[in-house]
């Protein structure tokens, strides 16, 4: 059996430590062949469960599920509007090259202490707020990375997603993990591209050094509102430069 098949079996059985599992599961994002091998092992092993005596669920469980699904489906309509708005911003702000993103970073960083200008559109300008960066390894520490640069002057987030490949059946969604509040979505990222997203004030106010940020794999269109977020494929922390 090849090393990849063994890894697939380990992923299916969930034998690896959380860290190793997350790193290996992140490979599935860009490796449909590995995903196929995992699905084959899932199918091989699942018949084990046939030995378990069935357990009748509580009578309240189905009504609870049905209510959650209805609530999600109502929420999805609002959520779709929000996602559309983010996508429009992504389209407006999409930058052509890594050089342009780097230039944005340099200009943002240098001009912040020098210019006493007002806030960028929609953002509150704190002249002391530093530029924050986060780097999320996708797959392994040495592999591709999702780079985030937050420019507090304009409340813009520059997303460098060149290392993230789309598989055509999933989207990847970026979340701020705010203590006490839970994850807040920053939207679906565009794989393989650089983008600049303007964060609304309620999100911008939360972006601080030390804040965790995670990338999850979701169905196309992003995680359903109120539902369970998909698996985390990369994580990192904002820090000052």
């Amino acid at each position: 059996m090849t090393e990849r098949e063994l890894l697939a079996a380990e992923l299916a059985l969930r034998l690896l430590s959380d860290e190793d599992h997350a790193a290996a599961a992140a490979q599935l994002v860009s490796d449909p062949e590995l995903a196929r091998l995992v699905a084959e092992w899932d199918a091989r092993l699942a018949p084990l469960a046939a030995d378990l005596p069935p357990v009748e669920p509580a009578p309240t469980t189905w009504p609870h599920i049905a209510a959650s699904v209805r609530a999600n489906s109502a929420g999805n309509d609002n959520r779709a509007d929000e996602t559309d708005a983010l996508r429009r911003r992504l389209r407006v702000w999409q930058w052509g090259s890594a050089a342009a993103a780097a230039a944005a970073l340099v200009v943002g960083y240098l001009s912040a202490p020098l210019l006493e200008r007002g806030p960028g559109a929609g953002g509150r300008f704190d002249p002391g707020a530093p530029v924050l960066v986060a780097s999320l390894p996708v797959g392994s520490e040495t592999g591709p990375r999702l780079g985030l640069t937050y420019l507090p002057r304009s409340s813009d987030l520059v997303v460098e997603a060149a290392g993230v490949a789309g598989d055509g059946t999933h989207d990847h969604e970026l979340w701020l993990v705010v203590p006490g509040t839970g994850p807040l979505s920053m939207g679906v990222i565009a794989p393989g591209k650089q983008a600049r997203v303007h964060l609304p004030p309620e999100l911008a106010a939360r972006v601080t050094a030390g804040l965790d940020v995670v990338l999850t794999r979701e169905p196309l269109g992003g995680a359903p509102a109120g539902g369970v977020a998909g698996p985390v494929v990369a994580s990192g922390k904002f820090s000052t430069i």
Partner: peptide, 27 residues
């Protein structure tokens, strides 16, 4: 609860050729 809510949200991606339907849900 989470299993069936996720199934409803994400849509069923069960592929008949690859193991049984119950095995797919159990996984």
């Amino acid at each position: 609860h989470d299993t069936y809510v996720r199934l409803a949200n994400n849509g069923s991606r069960y592929q008949g050729g690859r193991g049984s339907a119950i095995g797919w849900l159990v996984t």
